[in-house]
Design a protein around this nucleic acid. Structure first.
Lengths: 117, 117
DNA sequence: ATTATATGAAACCTTTTGGTGTTATGTCAA
DNA sequence: TTGACATAACACCAAAAGGTTTCATATAAT
């Protein structure tokens, strides 16, 4: 059930705005491809590709029902992102003072450096 | 609150594995570009580009100290991701039964499926 | 059986992405 | 001032990403 060699991971999957919109749509209820497509200004084929990517990342899953394929979210995979984020929580919590020091002393040269980048 | 027209958002920024590694490095302490580069099998220029992207997404920030530029994480921006994720928590919590129903019954509910012509 | 619907899949195109190398600029140390 | 160091700012390139159109296949309905 879990394909070992996945080309797209969760991070790549959610990088695209269209795919995030698709996820939002599927949050409410499962939908077939053509129904999803009707919400976007692009071809059905394009949406199908996006769904394929979301599917490879295990963010969604599709089931054939008659002649249509209905896609729904896969909650478990969102956990992957939460885990990734929680790793950094360690630092905000444990090392917060150290970080605050670094951040708040960005005027080492006694002058506020404008972000010219 | 730097709100310029940013080309890269948080989602795109974390999509690249190298950039996620950079974030991991910077979690411990701020580092200059060349130091960061020493952890990767690619040129300093490449890393500089990655830092530029992370910087545009406000995930990191750099301050010039003497002739080097030290980069550090920007904790606030990680909140953006948490917020995005928490949106879906709604559904896992409130509508979990509905979703489980949909998944487990592979979409047998036919209440609002109208034929579109 | 025929036709309309829903999707799958391939070939193709353009822009973006992620890397390279080279050159220029600014800073520290003799 | 000179030389070493740290980075910035190009120009360039191959591959991937995101879209298109076209064609094929499976199911539903008449």
């Amino acid at each position: 059930m879990s394909s070992s060699a996945q080309k797209y991971d969760v991070f790549q999957a959610i990088a695209d705005p269209t795919r995030r919109e698709v996820l939002k749509l599927l949050a409410y209820k499962e939908l077939p491809i053509s129904e999803i497509t009707s919400h976007f200004p692009m071809s059905r084929t394009a949406i199908a590709k996006h769904l394929h990517i979301l599917s490879e990342a295990n963010l969604v899953s599709g089931q054939k029902v008659g002649r249509e394929k209905r896609y729904h979210l896969q909650p478990e995979t969102f956990q992957e992102l939460k885990d990734w984020l929680s790793y950094y929580d360690q630092f905000w919590n444990n090392k917060l003072s150290m970080l605050k020091y670094v951040v708040e002393n960005d005027g080492e040269d006694s002058r506020k450096n404008k972000e010219t980048d």
